[in-house]
Amino acid sequence: MNINKYPQIRPGKKLFKRVYVAIMLWTVGKAIQVAAKVDKEVKEELARLPNNFTLRMMVAPEKAFPLFFYAKTLPAFVVDKGLLFYGIQMLLHKDKEGKIKYLGADPKGKKVDLNIVFKNIEAAWLVLSFQESTATAYMHDRFVVEGDLVHSLTFVRVLDIVEVFLLPKIIAKLAVKRYPKWSEMSPLRKFVKRVVIYIRAYTF
């Protein structure tokens, strides 16, 4: 038989979704870093995590399509090189004093304690474009957790609070299980934090 009649197929890439997810992950990482500084509730939640703890949120598979050429030519302030070498991801680190810091997307040489892995780009897209709430995504097995499950619960809770801060009510309602009432979170606090987090996340 002529086996060339049945060619091998290498499926392509989803560029738009990759870029979108990368931007969203970057925003989430930065926003958590800022929220941990300015909001008491987030700080209290993050206090549950042990010190000297690194968390990674990524889209499987790792190192799927390394872009060595771009990584070598593009300067670091244009694009995080970790994204090009290792795939889409973000790292958060809680240091010895309990400060949260966004570490970019380069996992090289870092010990990752908790790894939250979206099974595929489509899963990450569903979650980060708010078509599925975090809880639904967890139920639909859109992501898996490597490491201590307990810490991932803390992270999901923080994510929920930050989403309430950052997103308008109509979208945040899709992303969280229960939108907080006035008694739980005053609109003033929400609005002030929203402005502060956006400004600080996108400036430094």
Binding site: R10, P11, A64, F65, N120
Partner: peptide
């Protein structure tokens, strides 16, 4: 069908 495998490490050996 093939699009569903995009952005993964999977290579389809052939479609018979």
């Amino acid at each position: 069908f093939v699009r569903a495998f995009a952005d993964s490490m999977v290579v389809l050996g052939a479609v018979y």
